Amino acid sequence: MTPTVALTRETAQNALNAACAAVGLDAAGAELIRIGSNAVYRLSEPVIVRIARNGESIENARMQVQVARWLSGEGYPATRALDVDQPVRSRGLVTTFWESASEREEYAPLDQVAELIRRLHSLDAPSSLHLPEIRPLAKLDAQIGDLANLDRADAQFLENRILSIRDQYERLEFDLTPGVIHGDANVGNVILDRAGQPILIDLDSFATGPREWDLVQTALFYERFGWHTEDEYRTFVKVYGYDIMTWPGYRVLADYREVAMTLWLCGKAGTDMQAAAEVRKRVESLRSGGSRHDWAPF
């Protein structure tokens, strides 16, 4: 097994330099756009470089590149994988290369988000892609160790909430026909290209499974977070053609997403005081049923 390498500014920069050299690109002057689940760089030429958290994600990175090439062949508007031999494992981290769609990060309006999701759900992925089935509960299980960064009461609360979600999820009956899904579809993953046209980005959660997973975040952001207006959400529903909030299982998926967002942040709470404070705030609102409007993005 390849040893896990922590994703820091230093390790990401080292991986960037080595990976760019391996495919004949120049890393000089690269701009670090963000560092979270991935480190994302913009090169001096129109190329985006994504560096994943550890070297064990090579299969996922390969899947992302294959999905991007399939979508390109379908004429579907999504991020395009650069035509180089990738992914590249370097310095213990996995790197992928993408065509830069725009020099600025501008998000598409919700009607365009809905249209791209609707179009995606109309596609049948070839069996050669070997897309995984979505396993949301397994993802929580993989992160459960990060609860050690919390005080015992908060950790126990989240453990109990996960158990409750697990029990409810296993008894859900989904409305929509399952198939290919983005897995993390929301306004933050649909940007406008240089021509002002929407494209789907961040393909690392692509899978097969219930289509409801691609609708729940927009509903959650409207209903609990107040990030979308009612008019925006109603337009989203009209364009897509289905309102997940009318489905009895909506609350279970929404609860899952809240816990998943919080559990991901627990991984940073051990070394980041702001993240730790945000986790405490989120747990308290989950415990009390209070407003989520003050949850800060990370």
Rank of each mutant, 00 (worst) to 15 (best):
A275D: 09
A275I: 06
T8C: 13
D272P: 14
T262S: 07
V252T: 11
G92V: 10
K139L: 08
L116M: 03
N189F: 02
L263I: 01
D151I: 04
A18R: 12
V67S: 01
T8K: 13
Q66Y: 05
H121Q: 03
V279F: 08
F298T: 09
N54G: 13
R280Y: 08
P297K: 06
D83P: 04
V47M: 03
L286M: 12
R104W: 14
L203C: 04
S72A: 15
F97S: 01
A101E: 02
G289D: 07
I117E: 04
Q86G: 11
A52V: 06
T235F: 14
R171G: 08
A6H: 15
V49G: 03
Y256K: 01
F236K: 00
Y233H: 07
D214R: 00
V252Y: 01
G145Y: 03
V187L: 15
Y242S: 06
W70T: 02
N160G: 06
L123Y: 01
R287I: 01
N38K: 08
R69S: 01
W247C: 04
N189Q: 08
V180K: 02
I201M: 01
W264L: 11
R257F: 13
R62A: 13
Y169W: 12
A185E: 00
I134M: 10
E159M: 13
D26V: 03
R34M: 12
T79M: 01
M1S: 15
T262R: 06
M63Y: 00
R280D: 08
A101W: 02
G270N: 11
S288P: 08
A18H: 12
R211T: 05
I33R: 11
